[in-house]
Design a binder for these strands. Structure first.
Length: 265
DNA sequence: GCTAAATGTTGAT
DNA sequence: TCAACCTTTAGCT
């Protein structure tokens, strides 16, 4: 379930459980056997999350680089770890805990240089402390591409995924099809500030909740899980604000959702 | 029990 | 623009 906020939480969890400890690294599935052998029995010195990328830094300048892709997962738990089942790419064990990685798009050993090369390709990350929306705007303002596509481009802004894309455009009242060059600096700054707010909340809670309390349907005073979003995966359902059916199309091979009235062309 | 879809990226066409 | 990657889950039957 990985957008940037998830990766950041996972970095924090690895740090909490394993930093300063010597880890047993294995690849029960075998697909990462060589890498696991390289990292096995080394101390974890730190972690780093940038956009949707995670690095675990082991002694000797060896990094484990993980990108979860669409369906990669980490599962954390206390030892003893259960017997490995299925395609378990990596298991980390130490300090009374285990972490299992499945389904990742990228799982490889990096040098610090490899990491720098990846980071150099990424745009500013709303979750990094000294993020720079101006660097992203420089790309947006000279692009004819729709802003809905630009927001998903990791070289423009790192860590934003399909849910935050749809929701932040809804909250800003911006049509996803509007060319980047027609987004004003003020609009972009507001968009960015909202990403920072929403993604930080995501790091805190582990969930993406973008609806303002006043716009949620309520049952017996409790917000329901399906009230978390304005438009994401709500095709055909009435917009929470104006009642217009939420629109859907495929943009850049991903599902896009928006309200044609609240986000006018 | 089966199928389709999913919060993503890469590399071939 | 599209298939591939590779796993889980929701929604059917």
């Amino acid at each position: 379930m990985p957008e940037g906020h998830t990766v950041r939480r996972q970095a924090r969890e690895h740090d909490k459980l394993f930093r300063g400890h010597r880890l047993h690294v294995s690849s029960p599935q075998g697909r990462f056997a060589d890498g696991a052998a390289l990292l096995d029995d080394r101390t974890l010195e730190g972690t780093d999350a940038y956009g949707k990328h995670l690095w675990l830094r082991f002694e000797g300048d060896l990094l484990l680089h993980v990108h979860l892709g669409l369906y990669g997962t980490w599962l954390f738990g206390p030892e003893p770890a259960p017997p490995p089942v299925g395609a378990l790419r990596v298991r980390l064990e130490g300090a009374g805990a285990f972490a299992d990685l499945r389904g990742a798009t990228a799982c490889e050993v990096h040098t610090p240089g490899d990491r720098r090369a990846v980071v150099a390709r990424l745009g500013p990350d709303p979750l990094r402390p000294r993020h720079d929306p101006a660097r992203a705007f420089a790309r947006v303002t000279r692009s004819r591409s729709p802003v809905g596509l630009l927001l998903m481009d990791q070289t423009v802004a790192a860590g934003v995924g399909n849910v935050y894309r749809a929701e932040v455009l809804y909250r800003a009242g911006i049509d996803p099809h509007r060319p980047g060059r027609l987004v004003t600096r003020d609009e972009w700054d507001a968009l960015w500030a909202d990403l920072v707010t929403l993604m930080r909340a995501g790091v805190r809670t582990g969930r993406i909740v973008t609806t303002r309390p006043s716009d949620r349907d309520r049952v017996s005073g409790r917000a329901r899980r399906e009230d978390s979003h304005y438009v994401y995966r709500r095709t055909g359902l009435p917009c929470r604000v104006c009642g217009t059916p939420v629109a859907h199309e495929v943009m850049g091979a991903r599902n896009l959702f928006w309200c044609p009235v609240c986000q006018p062309a």
